[in-house]
Design a protein around this nucleic acid. Structure first.
Lengths: 139, 139
DNA sequence: CTTTGTGCAAACGATTTGCAGGATG
DNA sequence: CATCCTGCAAATCGTTTGCACAAAG
């Protein structure tokens, strides 16, 4: 949150990524948004005023950012890949009526106990997806 | 588990679905498998010996079965939609190395407490996705 | 006999790729 | 200045659609 321009540049560099205007713009835009946009929504947003990036570049930027651990995929609907730069762990609530997606704070639930997991499986992370109806749709 | 041929037929009928050889085959195959196949894997499987179904029909069968609540989608990798006929709730473990997917029993974890969820959100289900490395890959 | 499903092939939308020119460190 | 990125257009992959024929209830 509240990253300065120079912070973002340093962050990208520290992960071994070249800082290009396109890559910077993709990451900065994702940091600003909390709505988990798709690649295409991101592209629309960036190119709103004047062309900033192309389709192919959006995808390669997202791949690079993902590989660097700065961005993660969010999979909630079949065939739709969303992206999120808020990599601090959190859960998701998805409204089955309007499709809205809401972040759920990580510490809302007590941590899962992996003791009972089958021996051999080495977990290194998890997330909860909650399905339901949001307030806008239930009224 | 261990459904008889006639059971499956009755089950489909009870959900208001016409029983066609294709639909029957898709559902029966999914019931037998626990590996969450994609539509294409399912098609390969069914048509292994002789043609049973076409691509278009697999997709429409899956849609019908899903609408009837007999099958659910499993989303674990970007762009890959998997299907599962074991609709009793359960969680998933995905190996980040080989991609293997393993079912995790629903009652392995104590139930989540939705009390603290933002008022207005009405949850009606959830699932946990665990990421990690499986025994085959860690040795 | 009416309704719904099937199979084919064409259409589609999201993502990837090859390649020539351009920018980064 | 060597390496890596960008943009374009073509290619690819999974899924959907239109339509004529066949099968289910």
């Amino acid at each position: 949150m509240h990253q300065q321009t120079s912070d973002i540049t340093q962050l990208l560099k520290s992960k071994g990524l070249r800082v290009t205007p396109q890559r910077f713009a993709v990451f900065a835009s994702l940091l600003k948004r909390t709505d988990h946009p798709t690649a295409d929504q991101l592209l629309q947003d960036l190119n709103q005023d004047f062309p900033v990036s192309s389709q192919a570049t959006i995808y390669s930027s997202l791949q690079a950012l993902q590989a660097a651990g700065l961005v993660r995929e969010v999979l909630l609907e079949a065939g739709i890949t969303r992206y999120d730069a808020h990599v601090e762990e959190h859960h998701h609530f998805r409204c089955r009526s309007c499709g809205a997606i809401e972040d759920i704070p990580w510490n809302l639930f007590s941590p899962l106990d992996f003791q009972q997991l089958r021996p051999g499986l080495q977990p290194d992370g998890y997330e909860v997806t909650i399905h339901g109806v949001c307030d806008r749709c239930s009224s």
